[in-house]
Amino acid sequence: MADKPRVAIFDFTGCEGCELNQLNFEDQLLDILAHVDIVEWREAMDGHADEYDIAFVEGSLSTPDCIQRIHEVRRKAKVLVALGACAVQGGVNAVKNTHPIDEVREEVYGQDKYLFPTLPALPLSSVVKVDYNVRGCPMTQIEFLKVFTSLVMGKEPVEPEHSVCVECKLKENECVFERGMICLGPVIRAGCDAQCPSVGQYCTGCRGLVPEPNLEGMEEILVSHGLSVDEAWKRLELYNANEVEGVRS
């Protein structure tokens, strides 16, 4: 690697759970900094760079201002990486897409709703081209580092296409369906090392659906286990509202 890649980090609307500074990078920070020049990072530095090799972007887009800013980031970045469920799928913010937008504004901003124009919480990819995703809510350190080292080595990061069940079975977890839980793992994209089922929790689908999910099959699974399909789709929507619009119709 001749020159260090110039890296910029941005955050839009998010719960802040994904912010890079939340990832407890103490141990790796020096290693990371050895490979890149951080030229813009809103929390940590002032000033703006004119161009960067890699832009990491957190959060979804929910105001006209966001949209303007993301276009600018895209113009300046050679590679744009979406960080976390909000940026990748629209995230938890996107739940409001399923309610009439005025209701949401009223709920959130009360009387002042007309002062704050908000859009549906959009994933970055609905506005600009996103090159790579680091999924998850919150994303994990391991997955971030995998994408990061790939980019530093100049190779394309690849996302798993298989389900969370694969990672869950690799770890020999007892399936949480055995405990009467609704688990979305069978149709959710792996990558997290099945972290929720590994601690006896169900998968709520924060990494998004696998390519070509069989949602009718998933529905049958829920029914045959006597579980609530409605509840399952609600959870699925929590992270995938933009993807699963219409599933419940």
Partner: peptide, 12 residues
Amino acid sequence: KKCVGCGTCNLV
């Protein structure tokens, strides 16, 4: 129609 392609049957 029923299978969701999760791969569990292979892995076990």
